[in-house]
Amino acid sequence: MLIRECRFTAIDFESAGAARGRTDVPVQIGLASWSIERGHGGNFVSYLASEVPITWSARKVHGIRDEDLAGAPGLLSLWPDLKKSMADAVVVAHGKGTEKRFLRAFPGHGFGPWVDTLLLARAAWPELGDHSLSALCDARGLSAKVAEMIPGRRWHDALYDAVASLLLLEDVAQSFELLEKPVEWLVNPDTREWYRGRRIF
């Protein structure tokens, strides 16, 4: 399938933070979608119930407090929302390891293929010293657009980061003229193919 024909759904989790003797758990989820045909939309965000307290170090990063989770749904109860957003979509995440790990709560979910915008950015702009999502958006002039699209939120909010990942993906696809290329070019980024494609077409 060509990139211009795909629907992309970005997912981001914020977590309670790692602590000795316990498994990290998600406390917020954000989803957003983008396609050439429909543009950006389909935003969804929710806090998630947690049986473990949020660590000080995690709270310092994302600002989520234990009291913010009062009455929040459990991740498993959000299966209909996740399925609606992610089924038949190319799944996007910036550093996909955390997102894939938390989605193990749904064995056999079948979501994918996955595009990791961290790997994409490292392939596209290896000269940049910082490939964190916020630094990349600053370097590519995307940060103001993220803030405009998601007013009242900030970096390390799950929805904010999901939308930022999609804007970064869109920037890569347009900057390297990849919209008419197979989606595999994003799944397994190889800039030799990107530049070869630009010379030929």
Rank of each mutant, 00 (worst) to 15 (best):
R101P: 05
R65F: 03
A147P: 07
S132N: 09
C137L: 14
D161T: 05
V27R: 03
I150R: 05
C6W: 11
G63I: 09
I3Y: 03
F176C: 00
L159W: 00
S143G: 09
D24H: 02
T9M: 04
Y47N: 01
L166R: 08
L82K: 13
G21I: 04
D171F: 06
D88W: 13
S165L: 08
L186M: 06
E37M: 14
L168D: 07
A121G: 12
P151W: 09
L169R: 10
E67N: 11
T98R: 09
L103W: 04
S35L: 15
K83P: 04
S33F: 06
T117F: 01
G152R: 05
G74C: 12
L169V: 08
L167V: 05
L167I: 05
N188H: 14
D157L: 02
G112C: 06
G17P: 03
S77N: 05
A164G: 15
L169E: 13
F176P: 02
P182E: 12
M86D: 10
W56D: 03
T23W: 14
S33L: 05
K181G: 05
E180R: 14
M86V: 10
L120M: 03
L169C: 06
R140L: 11
L120C: 04
E170K: 12
S15Y: 08
R4C: 12
T55N: 00
G71H: 13
A72V: 06
T117K: 01
W114F: 12
L128V: 09
T191M: 11
L119Q: 12
L48G: 06
D157Y: 08
V187T: 13
E67D: 13
G95S: 04
G21Q: 01
E37H: 13
V183S: 10
E14N: 10
G71T: 04
V90E: 04
L119T: 06
V163H: 12
L103H: 02
D81P: 00
D24E: 15
V92Q: 05
W114D: 12
E37G: 14
E180T: 15
E67P: 12
G71K: 04
L103Q: 01
L75F: 08
G30I: 10
F106S: 11
D171I: 01
D12L: 13
P107Q: 14
R7M: 03
R192K: 10
L48N: 11
G21T: 00
L82R: 14
N43Y: 11
K60Q: 06
L118R: 15
R59E: 03
Y47V: 01
